[in-house]
Amino acid sequence: MIGEKPFFYRKYVIFSIFFIIFILLLLFVRNFYYQVLHEKEVKKSVGLEKVKAYERVILNHFPLSPYTERAVKELLSICEGFLEEKEKNYCYETLRSSLIQIRSFYQPYEEVIDELKPKIADLRATLKNKGEQGKKEEYERIFQAQLEILNYHHAPSCFWSIVTVFSLLGWITSLIIVIFKGFAKPLNKRWLAFGGVSYLFFFCLWLLGLLLA
């Protein structure tokens, strides 16, 4: 019967640790492989295709990757080199977007993104204003509006997101503890109380997280 042995065996804990290490190692190898591969594509490309190849290098980012760093630097200089505004805008937008897409619990190269915002706003305003007979006030209005959009951070709060997802795992685990430890025969009131209180705690935290994230 269950309960005579612990539900989670020690070997499963050890197995899980090895599993996580194995997965992380594989992810590292995979991303390293693809960064090298896409960097090779850069050498064969010209113009916007080069931008796209560097974009793929960044999108396969891994922490402390020298390839990502090189791709960001190269892209910045390539973007500067475009004479046509549409191409320059494409290049800056690509760099900004690819960096945003590699955001995790922190934003790598945040300073680069900040540096790009006024440049993109300027290009958007210039390109838009061309069709509006080039009035300076109009440029200024569009520039400010675009800068506001670029500065707006609409992802849920990182802190409250972490609280939410870990609280969910917390209340699910607490419930399983309540079921397996608390409802053993005879009823184990200590586990029942501990599991019940931790369930309530995590559940409330989860609700709070959903509202504040």
């Binding site: 980012h61 891994f62 897409q101 992802a155 939410t164 997802v165 994230a213």
Partner: peptide
């Protein structure tokens, strides 16, 4: 990513587990 609501029936379990894994510092979201 937005801890939001996917197409019906909403898939909240997937959304939350998905959000958890977005904190992994590899590749893209």
């Amino acid at each position: 990513y937005f801890l939001g609501i996917a197409h019906s029936p909403g898939y909240p379990l997937y959304s939350e587990l998905g959000k958890l894994i977005t904190f992994l510092p590899f590749s893209n979201i």
